[in-house]
Simulated scan of single mutants.
Amino acid sequence: MTVDGWLADARASYDTVAESYFELTRDALAGAPFLRAALATFAEMVDGPVADVGCGPGHVTGHLRGLGVDAFGIDLAPAMVEIARREHPGARFEVGSMTDLRLADGSVGGLVAFWSLIHIPDDVLPAVLGHFRRVLRPGGVLLAGFHVGDGSRWKTEGYGGHPMRIHVHRRRPERMAALLRDAGFAITAQTVIGVDEPVPGAMIFAG
């Protein structure tokens, strides 16, 4: 599949499920103390504007803004961006792709990729992380969250039973850390959550 092909599938899939995804995730952070703690730590560390890349309906962007962070969101799916603008009228949201991040070099003090890298193929991921490194200012902070595991699955339905066409990739923290180092990052912290769940999560801070 070409890059344009999988991106088109991802965009169409999340446009299709946008409202259902919003309803399912709007209060997700309320029941996720470890995620809130990570975002609070990130908010303490970061200085300057923050890009929430793959922001979906904007719940993480909005949470960061509530912590005093100058956060804005970017998402591939126009329907997700419409919801984010509706729900967070004071924030900036735009349509864009992390594979071609339209931000100036060194223009952000922080970047969040909260479970948005899970749809990026292995062969494209290094270029995406290179974009992240490029747009971060010296001393900037990246917070990446992702599914822990090996391999990927092809998802054809989700978020209220709507049709989807998208790969969901799982990666080991040590592998993600190595990819980040290859892109020029230094790892400052990493943690695994939901260790005994079928699909744990991981978060890595890098700068």
Rank of each mutant, 00 (worst) to 15 (best):
C55M: 09
G62Q: 06
T41A: 12
G31Q: 05
L64G: 02
D52H: 12
H59C: 03
L64K: 03
G48P: 11
G31P: 02
V50N: 03
F34R: 13
L35P: 00
G58S: 08
A43C: 11
A51D: 06
H59R: 13
T61R: 14
M45N: 10
G62D: 09
G31L: 05
V50E: 02
A71K: 09
P33H: 08
V50H: 06
D52Q: 07
A40G: 05
A43P: 00
A37L: 07
F34P: 02
F42P: 00
T41M: 04
F42M: 03
A51T: 11
V53L: 15
L67E: 15
G31D: 11
A32F: 11
T61S: 12
L35V: 05
T61P: 14
F72Y: 10
G31T: 07
A43R: 00
G66I: 12
P33G: 07
T41L: 06
L67P: 02
A32W: 10
L67C: 09
L67A: 13
H59W: 06
G48Y: 08
P49T: 13
L35G: 08
G66F: 07
R65H: 09
P57V: 05
A71W: 02
V53R: 01
A38D: 08
P57T: 10
A40T: 11
D47Y: 11
E44F: 10
P49H: 10
A40W: 06
V69I: 13
L35F: 08
V46T: 14
G54A: 14
G56C: 13
F42S: 00
A38H: 02
H63F: 15
R65S: 09
G68V: 11
P57G: 08
R36Y: 04
A38F: 01
A38Y: 00
H63C: 07
P57Y: 04
D47W: 12
G48W: 04
M45T: 13
G58A: 12
F72C: 06
E44M: 13
H63G: 09
H63A: 15
F42W: 02
V46H: 02
A32L: 08
A71S: 12
D70F: 04
H59A: 09
